[in-house]
Write a protein that binds this DNA or RNA. Structure first.
Lengths: 190, 190
DNA sequence: GTCTATAGTCCGATAGAC
DNA sequence: GTCTATCGGACTATAGAC
């Protein structure tokens, strides 16, 4: 136990998924190739194919980790607050997670862009997840439209950044994030 | 003159651009290949390469036509109304064009998804265009945030549909479009 | 202006050494 | 569990007939 090698900072599988997101965010979904991912992760192609035997498996791994990470972070924030969580809390924290993760992890969300580019069939899983949230938040006092519009704007900001379409300065982005969080709160209180 | 062949319904160049958008929207940006576009347009690969000598040229053609079509449609609607056009009219009509074009032309906007997937460098042109609109609409009575949030939600709906991420029914979409058009109007009137 | 044929490159995936 | 080497196929692009 004492002289065991230090763990690699991040397991190879995670490093590969990080690299895949990075390639998509920096170079575009067309350049998500096994060679590029392996190179970007500092792993050989054979090493990649041990963890993800096909490109499909890599894409599924990206999507699965994305949704898992979002849910885990939302739940972490909800738990941290203690008390029983209302529907309004759930919307507020989720909006917060989606908007705050991107700056510190610029490739956040790249899994969906990559999946949509490679095989639209994969997006059924995303739509289902999205729909469940929508049905939940539609029951807030603000109703369906208010919640849906907030989610649409959050999605617009995120996808815009992933596609290098976003023209906002850091200051403007911060203002928009605050405005969206306020709007999310108002969905709960009317 | 009398027995001349009927014009093809649409010139080959337009058919090729239509086909390119269709491929991206239906199969994903990864499948935007010269072969697929030529096949989908009913043209040979050599025919495609006469109009667009490289894939880059095809992508630029897609982007150029997209922005031209949007501006042309906005200006057509503004002109139809006669009177001098205010900034508020411009926002309202643009939101209307972006939201109403998609249902009747499902691949509308695919040019941007394709460009972002293939070469993020192309997106500088899109950001510039976006920024110019933003600066214009920020001067509305509602201010920067109101206008930006409306544009973000519009973008979220459009990109969501292009990426097959949108879980909304036709009825729900219609409600959201109406709500967004109302919100756009309120940017002008405060 | 549109076609076929093909050159040269890059892709996903397999096989097998270590 | 990670590596190298390599196959067959798909890709972009060129050359040249019609």
């Amino acid at each position: 136990m004492y002289f065991r090698q230090p763990m690699p900072l991040r397991p190879a599988r995670e490093r590969l998924l990080d690299a895949a997101e990075r390639v998509v965010a920096e170079s575009g979904a067309t350049h998500l190739t096994l060679d590029n991912v392996a190179k970007s992760a500092g792993v050989s192609k054979g090493g990649l194919l041990y963890h993800f035997p096909t490109k499909e498996a890599l894409l599924e791994g990206m999507l699965t980790r994305h949704f898992h990470d979002v849910d885990a972070e939302v739940n972490k924030r909800l738990a941290r607050r203690g008390r029983k969580t209302s529907r309004g809390d759930m919307l507020r924290e989720r909006v917060g997670v989606l908007l705050e993760m991107h700056p510190e992890r610029p490739a956040f969300g790249a899994a969906m862009v990559a999946a949509a580019a490679d095989n639209p069939g994969h997006m059924a899983m995303c739509r289902t997840q999205y729909r469940a949230l929508l049905d939940e938040f539609a029951r807030l006092p603000g109703g369906f439209e208010r919640a849906a519009l907030v989610l649409l704007a959050v999605q617009g900001l995120l996808l815009g950044e992933l596609l290098h379409l976003s023209p906002y300065t850091h200051e403007e982005r911060a203002r928009l994030v605050k405005a969206l969080q306020r709007a999310a709160d108002q969905c709960g209180g009317s």
